[in-house]
Design a binder for these strands. Structure first.
Length: 630
RNA sequence: GCCCCAGUGGCUUAGAGGCUAUAGCGGCUGACUUGUAAUCAGCAGGUCGCGCGUUCAAUUCGCGCCUGGGGCUCCA
């Protein structure tokens, strides 16, 4: 919608002849007033077609605001298509104008709507004060994207944004024996990291001057980097990083298969107009990417929820299949505010392993939460990061399920933070979070487990119960490991913290891109290295060969800079003896061992991880340099 | 989104209202064939983030934009 507003002393028009076949019927062809009025020339555009009522309401808002500013009660609504290069269909324009007129009348303005579809003569006399001439532009599809959905007033619930403002909550610490203490009374002496985490959540103590250390590390290790050619918060993954990313994705997927999940893939973009999605968007304060397809607007998914819910709503589900688990590695998009973005901690494009577990009722939900805690803990431990656990619970749920909460605290095995909120501001009544505290004492949430009490019904997901009747289930939303990018953030921040304590920083062996680097002493040994490489490959171990014409010292340095855990310098001695001389990063030692021993040592430490190949050429001389130093 | 800070070859960086804009790493060429964190020499590589303005003159000053970081807000 485009609009030109003129505050005028008097206004008149005369309809001459029809410009459109289906032009409005006229009661009178001439109109004239001497009173002052606010004349609004309005052109409806194609973008208004996605939501005419919304566009009309916003337009009426704009006019009313402008009228109040110039203290005007007389309004003229004048159809004027020539303001736009992308006019809507005439029917849309007519509907928009009629709705705007009615809306303004309801608000108590004197409104004259100039007939639609006629060639007209008109006379206007602009008052000439600073606010007398103004123009307005509205793209209603973008307004929708802001989730400030104008249809909300007609609907039943508030946006989550508004609801969150009202929500009040209280923070406690629950110990493993079930003792609950208010956060301010708890003795944190033995729980330094928990204190840092709680501070971050409650006191909002967030003072950092430096960039988070993981940002520099991720570039130096050539794992992931900014892409200036994309939107902010969208990153590119060179092969080393992609190897690590895929290793994590495969690890989580295999754990989910073990857990009994149905692994699937659903679309990236969804229709704004789909009825279930429309009301779900009101519940989700995150901003969306808008994708245009012809005249239609879609939004990029911000989690796997939609795809899986729509799929589940059409599936035939029996109570015998419950709990039913749907899992997906879901590339997701959230158009976070610029200032909220920070390296791998907060992105606009990220990869979220997302499982939805459909359960019959609260009892089954609680059992499933206990089950899920098992794999969440396992995966978190494999990341080799320290973490703090918190639960956010609706008071009503908490009071009804105190023993359940105590059971969780016992299972977690260390004090946990509990936030009890009075009013439900989102779809969940219960939410567990596994958080890392980074080198700047900021917290980042990785895994999360939530009990959703409203989307079963919203998406018309039903299961057939024993009695043959359709019933709405509860749904657990869970990210078993947290977003892959955020995992990398946690792992790198942990490495940096270790470094500060004087330890050698490292990546977990199972996810590190290159597990073994072979450094031949001279060119003649490269062939022998290739043979060793073949054996490593068969064993599922990722390796590369530094065949560049450089000194051994420099080859070792290069490998150390990339945090490669096993470096084997290979020369004539090794070729003759058949033994390897291995420099082990974590143990800071240098040992002789056979190839078989090396393979066994790595395999023993990585038994749980699926095999992931290195996604770049084995010969370092053939590898492009993307962002590593040497 | 708002407020603050920054942006110099691929990377790290020196510099100053003016004359041919530093240096190291990396790259290329040559020599060396190397034993556990940097071998030597030479060469190439820059519209000093983009646009507009101020000025005789702008990479340097001002404004706007883009990108990154920090704060607010918010989240996997």
């Amino acid at each position: 919608m485009r609009m030109l507003q003129i505050h005028s002393d008097g206004f008149s028009f005369e309809a001459k002849r029809k410009a459109l076949k289906n032009a409005e019927d006229l009661t009178e062809k001439v109109y004239k007033t001497e009173d002052s009025c606010l004349v609004n020339f309005i052109a409806a555009e194609t973008s208004d077609e996605t939501n005419v009522t919304g566009a009309a309401k916003t337009t009426a808002d704009m006019i009313a605001t402008a009228a109040e500013e110039v203290k005007e009660t007389n309004i003229v609504v004048y159809p004027w298509v020539h303001l736009s290069e992308t006019p809507s269909k005439p029917s849309t324009a007519m509907k928009l104008l009629k709705t705007v007129t009615k809306d303004l009348e309801k608000r108590g303005f004197n409104v004259v709507q100039v007939p639609f579809g006629w060639y007209k003569a008109f006379a206007i006399h602009c008052k000439g004060h600073p606010l007398a001439e103004r123009s307005k532009v509205l793209d209603i599809s973008k307004e929708i994207a802001k989730a400030a959905d104008v249809d909300v007033t007609e609907g039943e619930d508030l946006t989550a944004l508004q609801a969150e403002e009202k929500a009040t909550s209280t923070f406690y610490i629950m110990e493993t024996n079930g003792t609950v203490t208010a956060v301010k009374d708890f003795n944190f002496a033995k729980y330094k990291e928990l204190k840092l985490y709680v501070n971050y959540e409650t006191a909002k103590d967030r003072t950092a001057q430096e960039p988070p250390p993981h940002i520099e590390l991720m570039k130096q290790l050539e794992l992931v980097d900014y892409e200036p050619g994309s939107d902010a918060g969208n990153f590119r993954w060179p092969p080393r990083g992609l190897t690590l990313k895929k290793a994590i994705e495969e690890r989580v997927t295999s754990e989910m298969v073990d857990y009994g999940a149905h692994v699937l893939q659903t679309p990236l973009i969804y229709d704004y107009q789909h009825p279930s999605l429309k009301s779900y968007l009101q519940r989700f304060p995150s901003r969306q990417y808008v994708v245009k397809s012809g005249d239609h607007d879609f939004f990029a998914r911000f989690s796997a929820c939609f795809g899986q819910f729509l799929l589940a709503s059409q599936a035939t589900i029996s109570h015998k299949q419950l709990p039913l688990k749907l899992f997906e590695i879901a590339p997701s998009y959230r158009r976070e505010q610029r200032g909220e973005l920070a390296g791998m901690r907060r992105l606009r494009a990220f990869t979220m392993p997302d499982i939805h577990e459909i359960v019959a009722d609260e009892e089954m939900a609680k059992q499933s939460v206990m089950n899920q805690i098992e794999f969440v803990e396992k995966l978190m431990n494999e990341l080799e990061v320290s973490y703090e656990v918190s639960f956010r619970v609706l008071r009503e749920f908490y009071e009804r399920n105190t023993s359940f909460m105590e059971k969780i605290a016992k299972r977690i095995g260390k004090p946990i933070m509990i936030e009890v909120f009075e009013e439900r501001y989102a779809y969940f009544v219960f939410k567990g979070e596994w958080n890392v505290v980074d080198a700047q004492n900021k917290a980042g949430c990785l895994s999360t487990v939530q009990i959703d009490v409203e989307n079963g019904e919203r998406f018309k997901i039903t299961y057939v119960d024993e009695d043959g009747k359709d019933k709405y289930p509860l749904i657990l939303h869970t990210s078993p490991s947290g977003a892959i990018e955020r995992i990398l953030y946690g792992v790198l921040e942990q490495a940096y913290k270790n470094m500060k304590k004087g330890q050698v920083p490292h990546l977990p062996l199972w996810m590190t891109p290159v597990q073994v680097r072979l450094a031949p002493v001279d060119d003649a040994i490269v062939d022998y290295c290739l043979e060793i490489g073949k054996t490593l490959d068969e064993a599922g171990i990722r390796y590369e060969i530094d065949d560049r014409s450089q000194t051994v010292g420099k080859k070792v340095r290069s490998a150390e800079k990339l945090w490669i855990p096993y470096i084997a310098v290979i020369g004539e001695i090794e070729q003759k003896s058949g033994e390897l001389s291995i420099r082990r990063r974590e143990l800071k030692d240098q040992v002789k061992m056979s190839l078989g021993d090396l393979i066994r040592e790595i395999q023993n430490k990585t038994t749980f991880a699926p095999k992931q190949r290195l996604l770049l050429p084995h010969l370092v001389s053939k590898q492009a340099i993307f962002s590593r130093e040497v």
